[in-house]
Simulated assay, not measured.
Amino acid sequence: MIDGWSEEVPGNEVLEFDPEKAKELWAEAEASSPGATAPSPSPPTPTPTTSRGWTR
């Protein structure tokens, strides 16, 4: 135990895992954004070249 530690710290309740609440929140998130995926990365920017094809 850490000296001065207490379960009575405000906000401590968010550290407890509730599997039923987790399922409920996950379903809520899925319903609000069905089929959402991470954005695709942008294609690389082409490197400018000179008229002879050399990279600047």
Score class of each variant (00 low, 15 high):
residue 1 M to F: 13
residue 1 M to W: 11
residue 1 M to G: 15
residue 1 M to V: 14
residue 2 I to F: 12
residue 2 I to H: 11
residue 2 I to W: 11
residue 3 D to E: 15
residue 3 D to Y: 09
residue 3 D to R: 12
residue 3 D to K: 13
residue 3 D to M: 06
residue 4 G to D: 05
residue 5 W to Y: 15
residue 5 W to I: 02
residue 5 W to T: 01
residue 5 W to Q: 11
residue 5 W to E: 11
residue 5 W to G: 03
residue 7 E to S: 11
residue 7 E to A: 10
residue 7 E to Q: 08
residue 8 E to D: 14
residue 8 E to V: 00
residue 9 V to R: 12
residue 11 G to P: 04
residue 11 G to T: 10
residue 11 G to Q: 13
residue 12 N to E: 05
residue 13 E to F: 02
residue 13 E to T: 02
residue 13 E to S: 07
residue 14 V to Y: 11
residue 14 V to P: 00
residue 15 L to P: 00
residue 15 L to E: 10
residue 16 E to Y: 06
residue 16 E to D: 11
residue 17 F to G: 07
residue 17 F to Q: 12
residue 17 F to S: 14
residue 17 F to P: 03
residue 17 F to T: 14
residue 17 F to Y: 15
residue 19 P to S: 09
residue 19 P to Y: 02
residue 19 P to E: 10
residue 19 P to F: 01
residue 20 E to I: 12
residue 20 E to R: 11
residue 21 K to L: 15
residue 22 A to I: 08
residue 22 A to L: 14
residue 22 A to P: 03
residue 23 K to I: 02
residue 23 K to P: 00
residue 23 K to M: 09
residue 24 E to K: 13
residue 24 E to T: 10
residue 24 E to G: 04
residue 25 L to I: 10
residue 25 L to Q: 14
residue 25 L to G: 01
residue 26 W to V: 05
residue 26 W to C: 02
residue 26 W to S: 05
residue 27 A to E: 09
residue 27 A to Q: 09
residue 27 A to L: 06
residue 27 A to R: 02
residue 27 A to I: 00
residue 28 E to T: 02
residue 28 E to W: 01
residue 29 A to N: 04
residue 29 A to P: 01
residue 29 A to K: 06
residue 29 A to H: 03
residue 30 E to Y: 00
residue 30 E to G: 00
residue 30 E to H: 00
residue 31 A to S: 12
residue 31 A to W: 01
residue 32 S to R: 09
residue 33 S to R: 13
residue 33 S to H: 13
residue 33 S to P: 00
residue 33 S to I: 02
residue 34 P to V: 01
residue 34 P to G: 02
residue 34 P to C: 04
residue 35 G to A: 03
residue 35 G to V: 03
residue 35 G to R: 03
residue 36 A to E: 13
residue 36 A to G: 09
residue 36 A to V: 10
residue 37 T to G: 10
residue 37 T to M: 09
residue 37 T to N: 08
residue 38 A to C: 07
residue 38 A to H: 02
residue 38 A to G: 02
residue 39 P to T: 05
residue 39 P to A: 13
residue 39 P to M: 08
residue 40 S to G: 03
residue 40 S to N: 11
residue 40 S to W: 05
residue 41 P to Q: 04
residue 41 P to L: 04
residue 41 P to H: 02
residue 41 P to G: 07
residue 41 P to R: 05
residue 41 P to S: 06
residue 43 P to F: 00
residue 43 P to G: 06
residue 43 P to W: 01
residue 44 P to I: 08
residue 44 P to E: 13
residue 44 P to M: 11
residue 45 T to V: 15
residue 45 T to W: 07
residue 45 T to N: 10
residue 46 P to V: 04
residue 46 P to S: 07
residue 46 P to M: 04
residue 47 T to P: 00
residue 48 P to N: 03
residue 48 P to S: 03
residue 48 P to L: 05
residue 49 T to S: 09
residue 49 T to G: 01
residue 49 T to Y: 02
residue 50 T to Q: 04
residue 50 T to E: 04
residue 50 T to M: 08
residue 50 T to P: 01
residue 50 T to A: 07
residue 51 S to D: 15
residue 51 S to C: 10
residue 51 S to F: 09
residue 52 R to P: 00
residue 52 R to M: 12
residue 52 R to N: 14
residue 53 G to Y: 03
residue 53 G to A: 08
residue 53 G to N: 07
residue 53 G to L: 06
residue 53 G to E: 05
residue 54 W to E: 15
residue 55 T to M: 09
residue 55 T to H: 06
residue 56 R to T: 14
residue 56 R to I: 15
residue 56 R to E: 11
